[in-house]
Computed example of a mutant assay.
Amino acid sequence: MTKEDFISTFNPSELASELSRGGFQLPSFITPAHHVFHINRIEDYIHAVNFPLPSDLHPRRITLYNFFFLTKGSSIRSKGLDKYQFGANTFFFLPAYEIMTHEFISEDAEGYYCHFSLDLLVSDYKLKDLLNDFPFLNFNCYPLVTINDESKECILPLLNRLEKEYKAGEQCRYEILRAYLIALFTEIKPFATISSSLSHNSAYQITEQFKKALSQHIYQKQKITDYAEMLAVTPNHLNKCVKTVTGKSAHELLSDMVLLEAKVLLKQTSLSVSEIAYQIGRSEVSDFARFFKSKTGMKPGEYRKMVNPEI
């Protein structure tokens, strides 16, 4: 059994239900294209719902790629184990199935949220070429892309056009969505190269590879030596790289990922605490409970009741 077999995710239909529970009027915000593409104004969202919704604050995955673009205000979002604070003129990209939280958004925030399926784009692009051309779509990408005011004048009309086409409902043309998304990504691309090059030294690359490996293998591998072997480095070198980049040891980062996965399982599944302990590699429930409480100050059952009282 893989983690995708028992971690429930938010697919487009579940996202629509979440919006409905939050106060959105579905006819205005959810159109027939929603399963492959959606766009809405951030200011409309935060004014329509009592932000943050529980699903915003607690770890979750969605099955679609998405980006969050601020034209005004500030926000704090996380991707995997990393937290990012950003402001105006900045895109935050998140690949499908990445663990995410949305911790904060300022009351004056304005901009766009958009999710999309790669299926919408790969009819014209080979997947490999798409990911090579637009590095911010990759799983281990640096999520922030900050543009300048001159490029913003070109980018805002593209976003407005995407919004207009999406709101056309039954008359929405996928070829228009596809063309404008590619145009948008092409405008953003030069800034992504600048942003990513700031951090892409050897230690950063190894740390990113380690975090990606953690997200993929945390249920099967829970020893630093396993990951060091996977990355073809010594455990000491892996630890040194991770410490340099994150300020945490490799083992601390591994523990953080185990905790994150445990939170997702407690929130999004009906697995018992003992079953969750087993899935994340803790054979003894008491050991898992001590670990969880040392990190959160709560027992696993208390956390579950807080974030999802229906389970």
Rank of each mutant, 00 (worst) to 15 (best):
A48D: 05
N66T: 14
C114T: 03
H102C: 14
C114E: 03
H115I: 01
S106D: 09
I46R: 11
P54A: 09
I105V: 13
D82W: 05
K83T: 11
V49N: 03
N66Q: 15
Y84D: 03
T71S: 00
L70S: 02
D44V: 05
Y113N: 01
M100P: 04
S106F: 07
A96V: 11
F68Y: 15
F86R: 00
Y45P: 01
P54Q: 07
A96R: 12
Y65N: 08
D56I: 05
A96L: 13
R61E: 13
Y97D: 15
G80H: 07
Y45C: 02
T63Y: 09
F69V: 09
A48F: 09
R77M: 15
K72C: 01
Y113F: 12
F116Q: 01
P95H: 13
E110M: 04
P52K: 05
S74M: 07
F68I: 09
S55C: 05
N66D: 15
S75H: 07
I105N: 04
P54T: 06
F91I: 08
F91Y: 11
L70Y: 02
Y65T: 02
S55A: 06
H47I: 01
V49F: 04
A96Q: 13
I46H: 12
N66C: 14
P59D: 02
L70Q: 04
E103H: 08
G111V: 04
Y97V: 11
I46G: 11
R77S: 14
L53W: 08
A96H: 11
I99H: 00
H102K: 10
F67E: 12
E107R: 04
I76F: 10
G73N: 01
G87S: 03
S74F: 02
E103Y: 05
F51A: 09
P95Y: 15
P59T: 07
